[in-house]
Amino acid sequence: MGYTDQKNSRRTAIKSMFAAVVATGAGMFGIASAKSTGSAKLEKSPGKDTAIKKYPDKEFVHQGRQPLFSGSTVHDGFVFVAGKGEHGEGDIKVHTKKVLDKIEEELNRAGSSMEKALQVNVYLHNIRDYDGMNEVYRGRFGDHPPARSTVACYSGIPGNSLVEIDCIAAL
């Protein structure tokens, strides 16, 4: 955790700034309870939080080698969640639910939530699964869901997953 440790001392001082920024952002996304402080001011330096936190991927075995990817990365009030797939049995609804569960778990682990998701990419194995995916997807990110882009990439998703979803969220 090189970067995290190095920059730990800065974190506390920055926390209140984070809160203000998140609150301002939340206002934009229509979350009722959020209120802009108005006085929040981000300056390049000193005090700009350059720390990066990376949460290891828990799903795959890396056999002592360097991992291929992290489960999520956190920087400056943002959480980036890895593209998640489902590699077990089931149809598009089962896969979509399990993938969104994995996304939710990563968001919660990083200190965010489905309601704070900003941008989502959905990669479908087949466009005919679009309606089934939507059925399960709807409501999972709350009343004010994130922006979303969806494409199908015929047989192009690793690990035989019917859907792959990634996500950027606010802390």
Binding site: K54, Q66, S70, C153, Y154, P158
Partner: peptide, 20 residues
């Protein structure tokens, strides 16, 4: 790809887009 981004790599999404 492995190792190019260090010991704590970024998150990643991979898809194939056949001819795309």
């Amino acid at each position: 790809y492995r190792g190019r981004f260090g010991d704590e790599p970024p998150v990643r999404s991979t898809v194939a887009t056949y001819g795309g």
